[in-house]
Design a protein around this nucleic acid. Sequence first.
DNA 1: GTCTGTGAATTCATTCACAGCC
DNA 2: GGCTGTGAATGAATTCACAGAC
Lengths: 232, 232
Amino acid sequence: MTILRSPRLADGSGRGIPDATVARLPVYLRALNSLAEQGVLSCASNELAEQAGVNPAKLRKDLSYLGSYGTRGVGYDVEYLRYQIAREMGQTQDWDVVIVGVGNLGSALSAYQGFSARGIRVAALVDADPQRVGTVVSDIVVSSVDELEAIVAERKIAIGVIATPGTAAQEVADRLVAAGITSILNFAPAIVQVPDGVDVRKVDLSIELQILAYHEQRKTGTTSTTSKEVIA
Amino acid sequence: MTILRSPRLADGSGRGIPDATVARLPVYLRALNSLAEQGVLSCASNELAEQAGVNPAKLRKDLSYLGSYGTRGVGYDVEYLRYQIAREMGQTQDWDVVIVGVGNLGSALSAYQGFSARGIRVAALVDADPQRVGTVVSDIVVSSVDELEAIVAERKIAIGVIATPGTAAQEVADRLVAAGITSILNFAPAIVQVPDGVDVRKVDLSIELQILAYHEQRKTGTTSTTSKEVIA
DNA sequence: GTCTGTGAATTCATTCACAGCC
DNA sequence: GGCTGTGAATGAATTCACAGAC
């Protein structure tokens, strides 16, 4: 699901947070926002961990990679911690993304509430289908994929989202990379190859369901011992 | 992104495949299907690994958990391996899913091509909004969420998909569990609590983008050394 | 010679358990 | 007394490297 180098201590700044921790920080952020909305000013690792669905020791270790932002005997100041995590995640600036492919999924993504609160701005939509170019989706005029390079350059877009059919994914990825994009979120059912230095994350809806089906199978006792034949 | 117990050797059948491997098997399956379509009959671990975007040693170790389905000095028979993985993943039967929430995302999911080829069948759509109940989405009549329990029982649905706003997620999860469902895929931006024995996988679109933004930030040299202040 | 299958080595992640501070 | 922060211990996942089958 992830293809990323892990630069633990590989750069000058010396920070280097484990990948697994980075993947959880947004979850903590969400939990903190929710607490803040409820007017909670301070919380202990237990409470925050429960909100986030993780074990408290893991939460504390994760936070320890950022610094010592809690108070022993007391807990964490909700607003202060929220700010520190947001800063570490780069949410003190907005990130512009381009979505390639405005089918069902691309449209759903562009309509997704909650990007804006997390420093994500859908800056452009592009599609290869001339029928769709010029139409308006979520208040954005769909551009032709031919303009991809120009759009990326002009709007300083850093992140590309692929929401095309699987067959188009590699070509789109190549064009995104050629346009200078170094972070790609791929929803298409295909593995895309990219040069070093480009990060790709992949979300595959049917894979998630297949993983659940596997566990479900094991629970319901359809225990396929070596050579049990097809049932349905 | 995942909350699952790992039952390595915890059951009678003695199989027990690592979670990380289970998550990759569908990827291999996809790569094998693609090779089969191209008329390839046999392939070595290197080729398959490249298609799947993993290191060849990892691929071989993953496959070794299923059994010895390759031939030394030769490689793997595409069709045979494909069948073995499909069987292990439970794809020799169809899995019925119910999607709760027929907004943009729920609609996109119900229209998703490629479920059927992977043993996933969208058996029902439900929504809480009376305006949507009775409408037809992807050839399925949307039912009221009040009928959830009846639908699950009648159609023997094993997997529930939550595609509601975050605020409704916990209630929907509770109802799915009460209806007897033990596998949930949660797209809502909220952590849901479920009893032991219920598997939940979570996909959060904005979290994936936030993770990319973090790495992007580190690449573009916005190196936030402890106390460097906001730039944009 | 080729390529699989797998123990051993390594790297990464989680959890424990407690010292240190409030 | 309560709760954080973190070394040390455990557990999982990845990668190496090579014996063994073809």
